[in-house]
Amino acid sequence: MAEAALPGSNSSAAAGARKAVQDLNAPLWRNVLFVSPYLFFFVTLLVVPLFWGIWLSLHKADAFGTGRFVGLDNYFRLFRDKIFLQVVGNTFYFVLLTVPALAVIGLLLALALNRNTRTAAALRAVYFASSVLSVTIVTLIWRTVFIGNFGLLATVYGWFGATAPAFLSDPTLAMIGIAIATVWWCIGLPMMLFLSALQQVPREIYEAASLDNASRWRTLWHITLPSIRRTFVLVIIIEIVLQFQLFGQAWLMTKGGPNNASKPIVLYIYEATFIKWDLGLGAAASEILFILIMIAALAQYFISRRKGEEG
């Protein structure tokens, strides 16, 4: 189609084309028009509030006044607080538990369900269905699965005369219990991101591969996976960002307990802001969370980029 549209033939047209392609890459102010609508909201509703939050973190304040300037005092208080250090550790632990699981399971599901059949469509709906539930219900379900004596798990273990692990009240298991519930709840997004990436892989490549009699494994390993590498990075980064912000599941399943073993940073922030009314402390903890997410996401981004360049 593109060729047919080229007027005439000859080298002059080709030169014109080259010039046009060069223009395509020239920095032009009017191109900003495409990104400026979003940037307007980004700056007014994210960047400005972020700096406002940083300013707030330098104050001793509650919701009903501007408070007084205390410098970095809120940050010092955080680093003196054993529990804050514990919740930072908890949050990293939770991210390590959930992010790889979500990415790998999501990818496997997408590979298995990327077909145009009715069965596959129904199964995709099933795997997506848990995502539509609100966190209140998700946690209620998993609490009744995990809870002692009456829970589903306890019942099943009971059939074999065994005692079920206490996922909600054993400090070494609490975070794992929350992670299981989270993976169950959140698997829909990575699966769908991988599915839409798989849809972008040009079919010609597969056709060529099948002509070459490439084995299924070779096709998967050498064609499918490399072409969705970018999406894999995207999924990892998005999940890092999301799972660092764990809140509802921990609040509703264990209240962060026992002994703060399952308390994530956001729950700490919530308690500081809304229960202790210590807005400055909450703001300071939010900024630290921001920095941690940024480091984790950037690290992931650069690691994957370097690998990509080598490969």
């Binding site: 002692g148 004596n149 829970g151 009240s169």
Partner: peptide, 18 residues
Amino acid sequence: TTKDMDYAASINAFLAGE
């Protein structure tokens, strides 16, 4: 005492004579 129960489970347990 009963252990590992949340609020709803404890009500269930008491009503069931546990």
